[in-house]
């Protein structure tokens, strides 16, 4: 993929959920662009549509209507396995609830995206170990998620998101389940990753974090209410 154009280019995104007779408009026409190397924070009330937007941007979901290009590629015409490949190669997800595989060790969890990228076993293990080192958890490689603290789990999840060297890192309230001190450490890690050149879109409820962000996007009722870049 080319390094020139925007990473994210979305125009008029709408997402409508049918709940019986009523339509819920989770996104009501969103225009959003992000360039390579940007670090954007997204805020908004609960139910405003942040996760919905993030999922569409991450190719985990499709908009009801509107145009979306990731790295210059239109995703609406892609089938399920093409979307899976896009998620695998170009997107890294970090979730509020970590979503690590309970039965797998830290390093096995980090390897997971490489398994689907068909990276051979030995190289996979090496890259996963590098990833764990990057988040400072090399000594926890053999631990299972339930043997680690929340902050450690989230760091494993971040290592997992980064292991394919994705073009875009998406984090949906990554500090939502952590205390403020641990959350602060995680946010520091994201800042470092940004400085290393990663493109990051981060949803947060923490106004302190948001105020220090270079770019802040506010969402309300499925629309972008304000965008500090504009």
């Amino acid at each position: 993929m080319t390094a020139s154009g925007p990473v994210i280019d979305a125009r008029g995104l709408r997402k409508v959920y049918r709940m019986g007779e009523v339509d819920v408009e989770a996104l009501a026409g969103v225009d959003f662009r992000m360039e390579q190397g940007e670090f954007t924070c997204m805020m908004g009330a609960s139910g405003s549509g942040k996760s919905t937007l993030l999922n569409i941007i991450g190719c985990l979901d499709r908009p009801t209507s509107g145009l979306y290009e990731l790295l210059g590629r239109r995703i609406d015409s892609m089938d399920d396995s093409e979307l899976a490949a896009i998620r695998n190669r170009f997107v890294g997800f970090v979730f509020q609830t970590f979503n690590l595989l309970a039965r797998a060790s830290a390093v096995e969890n980090v390897e997971l995206p490489l398994v689907y990228a068909r990276v051979p076993g030995r190289e996979r293990r090496e890259r996963a170990m590098e990833g764990l080192e990057r988040v400072g958890l090399a000594d926890r490689a053999g631990h299972r998620p339930n043997q680690m603290s929340g902050g450690e789990r989230q760091r494993v999840a971040i290592a997992r998101a980064l292991v394919t060297r994705p073009a875009l890192l998406l984090a949906d309230e990554p500090t939502g389940n952590l205390d403020s001190r641990t959350g602060g450490m995680i946010l520091d890690l994201f800042r470092e990753l940004h400085e290393e050149g990663n493109t990051i879109l981060l949803v947060t409820h923490d106004s302190g974090v948001a105020s220090s962000a270079k770019r802040l996007v506010r969402i309300r009722d499925g629309r972008i209410e304000s965008d500090s870049a504009r």
Partner: peptide, 16 residues
Amino acid sequence: TREIGTRRAMGARRRD
């Protein structure tokens, strides 16, 4: 279910 969702987010195709 969660594991399935996670695997899908990490790039697992339906057939995987």
